[in-house]
Amino acid sequence: MFAQVLFSGLALGSIYGLVALGFAVVFKATDVFNFAQGMFAVCGAYFAVTAISALDLPFGLAILFMIAACATLGVLAHIFLIQPLAGRSMLAIIMVTIALSIVLRAGIEIFYGPQGRVLTTPLPSGVIRIGDLRISQLHLIAALTSWACMAIFGAFFRFTSVGLLMRATADGHEAALVSGVNVNAMNRLAWAIGAVLAGIGGLFLGQLQIVSPELEAIGLLALPAVVIGGMQSIPGAIIGGLLVGLIAQFAGSYISPKSTDIVIYGLLLLILMVRPWGLLGQRELGRV
């Protein structure tokens, strides 16, 4: 049982980590706490439904379509909502992301109708047995994809010039401005990345269950993940996501399914009291 719970926690945590990573990228670059991240995941799932069911695209193209659509959504959100609010209070910007998710949700419900949609992909749905351990292939693929995405973006930030510029921009806007970096372009890129990561998470969630606007809840689960990991830290988001997934599964199995929220948010409170910058974050005082 332990191994089984461990695996499912890691698989689930990987998806959380993916969405949380998108969250962290946006936050690090633009200081925006994006409450629409959950809705971005929902949009990703619906884009995939559109590509596969309505446009009849082959799976690979459908994924590309989904990624392009999510990236566009992220960029548009930045241009039309975040940029006009530059320099405004944190609350105003949080509020605009909440309003965005209200609008997106209504749009999805008008366009796709009230019923949940089934996402049919050629991804394997069988089971791999290792001794007593049963590993769902879909979970495994979700986890592997998440890790691949994390690795790709990790490398992107560390080794590519655009990635380095993004980090530089995130660390100090003035310095980047002086050196001639197009800050807005960098920020749009961050929003595109954030939305794409959420979209991939939504794709897997939609595959594991059913595509409906209720998948939005993933966004709220990514929240404790980023805080626990450290809001300014890219690897922190991943670790945070994994931790939240593991805690959810272990608390659910060994304490009671009801206890998961309390345990997760209890840990969140503890972290905030003891180490507010998160497990992997950089100590940064007076950040308001």
């Binding site: 805080v227 809001m231 948010y265 209890g266 969140l268 409170l269 905030l272 507010p276 308001v288």
Partner: peptide, 13 residues
């Protein structure tokens, strides 16, 4: 102990 966003999150908890 904490201000700003961190405090917002503690109230969420």
């Amino acid at each position: 102990r904490v201000r700003g966003l961190y405090f917002v999150l503690s109230t969420l908890a």
